[in-house]
């Protein structure tokens, strides 16, 4: 829509202006890891980060979400929860994580519109921050994204030295900065070139890549192949890969009660947990770890593309970084491609 520039020293002012109308969530240092948290002051923001440990999906799709409350006994009643009217800005979201929202949107507004997610989604503005230094396991360029990919954010800032190159992509984004237009200046074509230059340089610095050509069809043919068994042998069955993943969106629903009242809550669940698929009868259709590791790959690279025509991976590399036993999704896809079907 519009391209501007912002002097770096004016960023605190901009955040302050935004804070008067929005709740700002930004990367902050929590002990020794970086997480997205609501901030009160610009000083809490930590922009020296590769990416947050847990993906910012946790803001829109909370790990614990109350669906409704109830009272038990004679005076039993059900109370719905109010949706807060507050508007949020996620500041400093990486383009890959922003892309994950565009991917997960399909699930949450497909045949049933999930009000809990969608309400937050509609009231949240994404101010992205291009990566200037990729991580070891970043491969966003293989997943139709890039370190300065602006399609999924409302505003994208790119660090071009002494200032930020600002791309306002949507009217939602425009709304955020409309009261602080005086902080910005018009972008010149040299600014634009600089941004181009930087983003190309960063793209080149990304060393890992995943070849997904024809993977959907390929996976169809190798469901029963022994590679899944081999890959799963070293899987511990913990939830790191799925909890950290920006596109994993499975949840469990639980009633939490005291004697008099309670609530139905939704919490993240992971398909790596054997309990995930256990039926009420006690039967488990995915009894072995092999079935579960395979499911994670298939969900992202086969089922999801079949349903929504997009691969459910953004190439953020979190699952590779944090897997305790080095199960590497790039390696798995490579192995899968090599199998003779």
């Amino acid at each position: 829509m519009e391209t501007l520039t912002l002097e770096k020293n004016k960023l605190p002012q901009l955040i302050k202006k935004i804070q008067s109308r929005y709740t700002v969530l930004a990367p902050t240092k929590c002990d020794n890891i970086t997480l997205f948290k609501p901030i009160n002051d610009y000083k809490e923001i930590n922009l020296d980060f590769l990416n947050s440990k847990v993906s910012p999906k946790s803001i829109l799709f909370c790990q614990t979400e109350t669906l409704f409350k109830f009272k038990q006994g004679i005076s039993a009643e059900v109370k719905s929860v109010d949706f807060p009217n507050s508007k949020n800005v996620i500041f400093g979201i990486r383009p890959c994580d922003a892309k994950s929202f565009s991917i997960v949107d399909f699930v949450f507004k497909d045949d049933f519109v999930d009000p809990y997610y969608m309400n937050k989604r509609e009231n949240t503005v994404l101010i992205g921050l291009s990566c200037i230094k990729p991580g070891v396991n970043c491969f966003c360029t293989s997943m139709n994204g890039g370190p300065a990919f602006a399609e999924d954010v409302d505003i994208l800032l790119t660090d071009i030295g002494d200032k930020y190159y600002v791309e306002i992509k949507t009217s939602k984004g425009n709304e955020v900065v409309k009261t602080s237009k005086d902080l910005f200046s018009k972008a010149s074509s040299s600014d634009k070139n600089k941004k181009q230059e930087i983003s190309e340089k960063v793209e080149k610095a990304i060393t890992r890549n995943m070849n997904t050509k024809g993977i959907v069809e390929k996976l169809d043919k190798i469901f029963e192949d022994p590679i899944w068994k081999n890959i799963s042998l070293k899987c511990l069955g913990c939830g790191i890969c799925t909890y950290q993943c920006p596109t994993c969106h499975c949840f469990d629903i639980q009633d939490e009660t005291t004697l008099s009242d309670g609530a139905r809550v939704r919490v993240w669940d992971t398909c790596m947990n054997p309990e995930y698929t256990v039926h009420a009868s006690g039967h488990n259709p995915r009894p072995a770890r092999m079935n579960r590791t395979r499911n994670r790959v298939y969900h992202k690279f086969n089922y999801y593309p079949k349903n929504y025509n997009i691969i459910a991976c953004v190439g953020c590399g979190r699952c590779i970084n944090d897997c305790p036993v080095n199960i590497d999704i790039i390696d798995i896809i490579d192995q899968a491609r090599e199998v003779k079907a």
Binding site: D31, V54, L236, C238, G239, I240, Y243, P324
Partner: peptide, 10 residues
């Protein structure tokens, strides 16, 4: 900070 992934347990 715990996200209850139970990696410590597994």
């Amino acid at each position: 900070k715990c996200i209850r992934c139970y990696a410590c347990r597994n």
